[in-house]
Structure formats: structure tokens, C-alpha cells
Amino acid sequence: MANLEPFVEGGTFFEGPRWHEGTWWVSDFYAHTVSRIDPDGTMETVLEVPGQPSGLGWLPDGSMLVVSMLDHRVLRRWPDGRVTTHADIGGLATGHANDLVVAPDGSAWVGNFGFDLMEGEAMRPTCLARVAPDGSVSRAVDDLYFPNGAVITPDGRTLIVGETFGNGMTAFTLNGDGTLTGRRDWARFGPRPEPGSDRPTLLRQLAVGPDGCCLDAENHLWIADAFNQRCIRVAPGGAIVDELKPANGQGVFACMLGGADGRTLLVCVAPDSSARRRRAVREASLWTARVVVPHAGRP
């Protein structure tokens, strides 16, 4: 059992943590920034995203992709610092865009809420969008309950996506042409709720609310459990084999393995996920723990 320790403080709501080229990268929703963080905790803002940044990834040429949540775009920050629109998923997203995972060839899969979470709308299923390396957009799969954090296995043949309101992690075979087939449960934490349920009804049914996640070299997932103030390590099938909780009892909303040896787990912590409360204060933080099994796959 590892212990979480404070690392960086003073954010509004951190999300999309990544380890890339020897540093941490993270989005801050309501500060509208993407920042690079050195291993000693020194933070530098590298991009401002008025549309609220979330998932991060990199193309083969070194360009960084950033999800802009409110306007349903995927931005591209080129190696020379230029910022352009890489893709627009507005024709597919029925709620805020959120996390993404990028394959080695530059293909990206982007989730969205599917409904207006912050205004208390009833949950409804949505799709996962595929963004080809040239920025063209297509519908990858339908009937996902708030597709959120996603990973691609080291062999490049499986994509796993968390369904925050679906009580599980869903896997697909990732084909050479970028299509997803062979839908199956990777982890099942409880029955899948009925669409149309309001949030209080949903929360009573959910054992785990998968948010950001990452894969390790034993084919286990570290998953931020957005509803239970913890980060859990999960085996294929759904057995929870480890659990980490911040000492202050706050919520955990994303995680990533990184560091020089891939054994540092970074988690995004905040008192709650309320947009109204989080944008008004700077109470979000990043915590780290040392774990035994290193990072694998993407992101």
C-alpha cells in the first residue's frame, strides 16, 4: 500500500494529467490553462484555453492536442507554438467534450458528457468520437454512459474507456483502420443503470464512477473513482486490488503513471466537481505516490 503525498496546490480543478518528455502536464478547467510541471513541482503555463481544457495528447510530430470542452474542439499546439483547431466534434458531442487518448499514428478518441451534468439533466447515452490524424471526425461507437478516461494497450490492439455513469470499463478491439469492434466488459462494478435516471438515482446505483485512468505493466488500471474519494487499482474483470485516498478526504478525479521509471502515480484532487464552487476558489491540488508496477500503454 503506497501513500499519497501533496505535490502541487493552488489549482481550480486539475484534469488530464500526463507524463511526457520528462515532465508532467495538466489541464486546469477554470483557470483555462494547460501547464507543464517539473518533477520538483515548478509549474509553467504553456497554453490558455478559453473553452476550458481537458484531455491532452501528442501527435507524432510533437504537436500537443488539447480538448476544448465547451466549444467541442480539439486544439493543436504545434511545435513552433502556433495553435489551430485540429478537429471539431460538435456534430457528435451532446455534452461537454472531456478526455482523449491518442494512438501512436496520431488517431485520437474523444469522449463527451452526453448531457448537461452541471445543470442536473437526466443521464443519456452518447458516443465516442474518432479524430483521424488529418483531423477528420467520425463516430466510433454509440451507447456509452459518459465516456471519460481511456487507454490503449501496449500492443495497440485494445482501447478501454471508462463509463463514469455506467458502473464499468468497456473494452474494444482496435482495428488497423481505426474502427472499434468486439465490445465487451473489461471491468464490471455493478449493473448498468437505466438511461434517463436523474443524478441522485444514478449515484445510488454506482459502486465506482470511473474518471481519469491509466494502465500499468501488469495490465491493471489505476482509476480515479469520482464518487468515492479514492484512486483504485483494478484487475481485468473488476476486482479492486489496491486503493489510495488523500489524507484530507477530498475527491480524486484523474490519475497518471509517470516519472523517470514510470512508478510515480499522480492524482488530481479537489473537494468536489461542482463547476460553480470550483471556479470561485483555488482549492485543487496534485498528489503523488510511489507504486511498484510501472506505466504501460497510452496515454
Rank of each mutant, 00 (worst) to 15 (best):
F7Q: 01
E9K: 09
H20V: 09
G22L: 05
W25P: 05
V26M: 02
H32Q: 12
V34I: 04
D38A: 15
M43G: 06
P53H: 00
G55M: 04
L56F: 07
W58N: 02
P60D: 12
P60A: 08
M69W: 07
L70P: 04
L70E: 08
D71F: 03
H72G: 04
V74H: 08
V74M: 05
W78F: 06
W78S: 15
D80N: 15
D88I: 10
A93S: 12
G95R: 10
V101Y: 01
F113D: 04
G114I: 07
M118V: 11
M118T: 06
G120L: 06
R124E: 14
T126H: 11
L128H: 00
A129F: 06
V131R: 04
A132Q: 10
L144S: 04
N148H: 11
G149A: 10
P154M: 14
G156L: 05
G156Q: 09
G162H: 05
G162P: 11
F165E: 14
M169P: 05
N175H: 12
N175C: 09
D177P: 14
T181R: 15
R184Y: 13
D185Y: 13
A187T: 13
P191C: 07
G196N: 02
S197C: 08
L202G: 01
R204S: 14
Q205C: 11
A207W: 00
V208S: 03
D211Y: 12
D211G: 13
H220K: 08
H220V: 00
L221R: 03
D225W: 10
D225R: 00
F227A: 12
N228G: 09
A235I: 00
G237M: 13
I240F: 03
I240H: 04
V241D: 12
K245G: 14
K245P: 00
G249V: 03
F253D: 00
L257F: 00
G258W: 01
A260S: 14
G262E: 02
R263P: 01
P271C: 01
P271E: 01
R276Q: 10
R276V: 14
L286I: 08
G297Y: 08
